[in-house]
Structure formats: structure tokens, C-alpha cells
């Protein structure tokens, strides 16, 4: 249960960074932290006590001794998508910095909430 709490806390920390921070790089870092929190939450749902990774690597392993493989496969997809999102976000940050010469979102007009 503490795994759920910790990963939700990680999601909240990331959202706090996205909402409060002024530096765009820190906002992108916040997005990545939200990503990690969601991944941990998924893996925690699939966890089974005293079970191993879902690979039949040695003889004698049975299906009853393994964790749920579906969340792991979903997280594998999600990590790649998260990487793509972060890369595109950072390239947009590079272009914004080229144009405005600042990373502070308060100085970039029309972007304030």
C-alpha cells in the first residue's frame, strides 16, 4: 500500500512543479516526474508478494511464482512515449529560448496563467 502512496506522492510532486515553477526546464522535469510516478503506480498494481520477473529463465518456474506481466508491458510502452514527449518538449524549449532569450515563463508574454 505504501507503494501506491509513494507513487501518487511522486505524481503530486511533479504536478506541483508544473503548476508553480517559473523555469520551463523545471516544468519539463515536472512532466518527467509525473511520468515516473505513473509508471511506478502501474508496476505496484501488478506486483505480487514474493514473486519474480515474468521470464521462464530457469526450469521449475511456474506461472504462480511470477508477477503480472501486463502492467510491465504497458509501462514499457509508456516509457518510450514519455521519452518522445520529453524530447519534443525540450526542443520547443530550445526554440523558445532562442526567440525570447529567457526561460522564465513570466517574461514570455501571452504564456501567463
Amino acid at each position: 500500500m505504501i507503494y501506491y502512496a509513494a507513487s501518487i506522492l511522486l505524481i503530486l510532486i511533479g504536478m506541483y512543479a508544473v503548476l508553480v515553477k517559473k523555469n520551463i526546464i523545471k516544468i519539463v522535469i515536472g512532466l518527467s516526474i509525473i511520468d515516473s510516478g505513473v509508471h511506478l503506480l502501474f508496476i505496484a498494481i501488478g506486483y505480487v508478494k514474493d514473486a519474480t520477473a515474468p521470464i521462464y529463465s530457469r526450469p521449475g518456474l511456474e506461472a504462480g511464482q511470477m508477477v503480472d506481466p501486463v502492467p510491465q508491458a504497458l509501462v514499457l510502452t509508456a516509457i518510450v512515449i514519455g521519452l518522445a514527449v520529453t524530447a519534443v518538449a525540450l526542443s520547443l524549449v530550445i526554440r523558445l529560448y532562442d526567440h525570447h532569450k529567457t526561460l522564465n515563463i513570466n517574461r514570455i508574454r501571452k504564456l501567463k496563467w
Partner: peptide, 12 residues
């Protein structure tokens, strides 16, 4: 959602 127990789903 119970933690650390086996869920009866497609993963099985």
C-alpha cells in the same frame, strides 16, 4: 485495489 495479491485477469 489490493496490493501484492494476484489479480484474476488476462495476465494469468
Amino acid at each position: 485495489v489490493p496490493f501484492g495479491v494476484r489479480h484474476d485477469n488476462v495476465g494469468q
